[in-house]
Simulated assay, not measured.
Amino acid sequence: MCGRFVNLLPTEAMARLFEAVPGNDLPDGERYNICPTNMITTAVSEDGQRRLRAMRWGFLPHWYKTPTDGPLIINARAEGIATKPAFREAIRSRRCLVPASGFFEWTKGAEGARLPWYIRPADAGPMVMAGVWQDWEREGARMTTVAIVTCAAGGGLEALHHRMPVILAAEDWPLWLGESGHGAAVLMRPSPEGSLAWHRVDPAVNSNRATGPELIEPMADG
């Protein structure tokens, strides 16, 4: 799964990366501990133009009467996504790219302690995760919400967790965004061997209030 992630890319860098027009309400600055319900930057393709849009991380199905009317949906499992009522329309026509620098995963230590790991591209470049989005509106309140698509872990990451976000290579972005035809389902697969690297980080990141570059620094014994 993906429950926390990092994005150190400035808005200008993301606009260049995706050749996209940035919105006016994007969260900016280095973000070391992005948590569910935070606003995040995404890239979408609309009317022949890529745009950067701010979305709430936590997908709200149209039948939710309030944002807390059901479970917080931060991930969408690739398996069955095309038939699940919450996602079947979004996966067909509302796909997006979620830029990141890396994400966190946890293993269990002695006596059940949560041991955090920081996972990033092995080449230290940007990471682009697959997302699906949904506009939600009730009684005049409106927000655009997003879930990160996940698949079975691969590339050696299975040792840490059985799930991982779907990470898209640059050549796959047009297909995922629907710019180059149909068939995006083939992209929902694990990352190849050697494409990711990871290391232990300080348990301080276990708090959703923690922030700062020390959260992604390797532990001495990690």
Rank of each mutant, 00 (worst) to 15 (best):
C2T: 05
C2K: 09
C2E: 03
V6W: 05
N7V: 06
L8Q: 08
A13N: 15
M14S: 13
A15R: 08
R16I: 10
F18E: 02
V21N: 10
R31C: 02
N33D: 12
T37N: 06
T41D: 08
T42V: 12
S45H: 08
E46C: 01
R50E: 09
R53F: 00
T66S: 15
T66Q: 14
P67I: 08
I74C: 08
A76V: 05
A78F: 00
G80F: 03
I91W: 05
S93L: 12
R94Y: 00
R94P: 03
L97I: 01
L97C: 05
A100S: 12
F103K: 03
E105Y: 00
T107Q: 12
A110Q: 15
D123C: 06
D123A: 07
D123Y: 04
G125Q: 12
V128K: 04
A130G: 09
V132G: 05
E137A: 15
E139L: 15
E139D: 15
G140F: 09
V146S: 01
A147I: 06
T150R: 03
C151M: 10
A153P: 01
L157T: 04
L157E: 07
L160V: 08
H162Y: 12
E171S: 13
E171V: 03
P174F: 01
G178M: 09
H182L: 15
H182F: 12
A185M: 10
A185I: 09
L187T: 02
M188Y: 01
S191R: 06
P192Y: 00
S195D: 09
R200A: 15
P203M: 06
V205Q: 02
G212V: 10
E214T: 15
L215D: 12
L215F: 05
D221N: 13
G222M: 05
G222N: 02
